[in-house]
Design a protein around this nucleic acid. Structure first.
Lengths: 219, 219, 219, 219
DNA sequence: AATGAATGAGTGTTCATTCAT
DNA sequence: TATGAATGAACACTCATTCAT
């Protein structure tokens, strides 16, 4: 997203020169890898399978990556790119409750559409090599930052009242709810439609458990 | 937890007969495995490493399990046992808001104390063999069921007002937030203390994002 | 041999595509395996040893087979192929006593030339997986069938007089004598030359123990 | 059997002193081992299984043997003992054709009764350690010697006419046919009864393939 | 740039054998 | 004498990675 000092992109070396070819091959590779990782996880997927699913030989695969982990990184990177792209229209709407609600809706819908990718990313992230890992984690913080700023914006605009910490937790809350929709779909989707889930989530976030007397003397 | 018809426990065969010895060795094994899985994940951990960490030879390891996946299952099973044990005092307090708050606190504190175990369980669950997997998932639903019933109890007691679906979602919400405290501790603990996290979580669950006018016109 | 509906050949999968390379590598493999199996038996022979003897790495070995038992099957299959090839000139000579004698001589000479292979095959056959086993047994029946038909042919031509059962037993008899030459070479070759063995065998088969009055009142 | 200089019996050391107990335990052991070897072969049978089948623990098993191969040896040894016992009445009848026929009948019947044991012995013999192996092979030569002497006896008595070599080959022939009745029972017993097999064998040995003109101009 | 055969370190698992009780 | 838990060498098999063509 906006981000101040975006971390240095973890470079994946390729021995092929033609940039557009690299782009094309990695596309095929990522598409195949996501499918396989989703089905069997990163570790149970072999490089040969990735190559086959992508439509070329292992030899070729290794012309475009250096290690198997590169594939995982590429997948994670692609996911953030895509998410950023989908969420980019939000940047403007800051400062209004309606904008926040739209953002939440868009975010959850994005996850719903890319839930394989999300699941892969959250399950396999720890298999990334150090530098790639920190890049991905920073990406995630950026995303949390987006929602944090939206919440802060609403607060400044007087629509809600939140301390800095509360805004941070709220952002985290939204992110987590999204992950939940991807992660726990084995049970959630038996019980809720996408729309229901979004609505209830938003309600819960903004208004808490319905009907709870709003004194706020929690501690 | 309470649970109606708890699913059949996935049995792990041992060729050793002395039950108390089995208990003891599996204890060692689980302790070692949790540590290693936490550090390197299930797949990157070797059975030899598990044996060594547990303090015996691979030969001995395999006297107490059949496959590597058995170790993972044993770890998951142990965690639920422990969690159940820790949360068991909650069973009575149903129906009051104070009881619910206590439950949330206890739950998050439990996770905080066992966060390695939780992280392992949530990251590696998908590597379990079919029958073990479904056993673990059912355990998780049981746990969600506990919170669901507490929420429903509060609702019946008139302390809060929730539809059945809302209670179910609220329960998931609690569970997932707990997972996040384990999972995302790399970032969360930089920003919140355990107490703060619990308080804000509770507030957010019950009252929503602070200061948001309570009309409830979401859609 | 001739055979009506030869059983489906048990396929051994290879991940290498180049058929002629497969042929070549399997040749090396079979040659090495026969040597080792002869020396130490199937079970005492290591896949690594087979690979080494064949002149490549285990990795490569497993590019051309799926399991160790595949090697055994390949060995058995090769032997039958070779035997069939060597015995193929016999097909025509049916119906004459001279033809039968030639067949016996050729058969025993073949075994003499391939006695390591035969010994391996008869000693290790039971280690084959189900489908491969039945393929090999059928091959053996086919071979018995060849001699059975030759005997029946001689009988029809009036050169000898045999019931159907007797022809079957006679065929079995020939087969067994051949195996004996391979199997018991540790003692037989101290006592007989190949030629002597063949001659005596033929005599015994056709004329029985010399000088025995031919009444036939066995019981 | 009679035997000139019977080879030194390969000793199997036991750490138990009580001879009659050794006898008893080894009995159990052999009985169990034969069953298992028959079913799965020597190599696929584990020492634990042998102990279990025998009715005691591995610890106990190893009080009565030193290595797994000792069990195999014990099995082979027992078989010869038993065969010798069964065939002992033959010793006298030497020198008559009727005696020879009886001997063949008794030998084949013995094998028929002990075919599991025979199959095991012939299939697994090569797994014996050097000294045990040569002991067993000598035992077999002793057995061949019995028949050889019977044939020679008949020849001296003028009942048949055989050179020394022919007698030796005839003896082998009988031995091998017996082995085949054990070994190839999967096909032979579909086609012949025990009685038929014995009769045809005897006929073939003494009179050759029925109806073949007896000039004897083989070469 | 693409291929796929070759490699061998590494992994899960087994099992004969030992030894303290 | 009997037991069975412990051991670790050994084995079949996999798979990421390389490299000659």
């Amino acid at each position: 997203m906006t981000g101040k000092k975006t971390s240095v992109r973890h470079e994946v070396k390729s021995s092929v020169k033609d940039e557009s070819l690299i782009e094309k091959r990695r596309d095929q590779m990522i598409r195949g890898a996501v499918k396989l990782f989703r089905e069997k996880g990163f570790h149970r997927t072999t490089t040969r399978e990735i190559a086959k699913e992508a439509g070329f030989s292992i030899g070729t695969l290794y012309e475009y990556i250096r290690t198997k982990e590169d594939v995982l990184y590429l997948v994670c990177d692609r996911i953030y790119e895509e998410v950023n792209h989908r969420l980019s229209p939000l940047a403007e709407k800051q400062g209004t409750l309606a904008g926040l609600k739209d953002a939440i809706r868009l975010y959850i819908e994005t996850i719903d559409a890319m839930d394989d990718e999300f699941t892969v990313m959250y399950q396999e992230t720890k298999s990334l090599p150090r530098t790639a890992l920190s890049y991905v984690l920073e990406k995630e913080l950026e995303m949390a930052g987006l929602f944090e700023r939206m919440l802060a914006g609403c607060s400044e605009a007087g629509e809600i009242r939140l301390s800095e910490k509360e805004a941070r937790l709220g952002a985290h809350h939204i992110i987590v709810q999204g992950q939940m929709w991807a992660f726990r779909r084995w049970t959630l989707r038996k019980q809720f439609t996408l729309g229901e889930f979004i609505d209830m989530l938003t309600d819960q976030l903004l208004y808490g458990v319905a009907g709870c007397p709003q004194e706020g003397e929690t501690k």
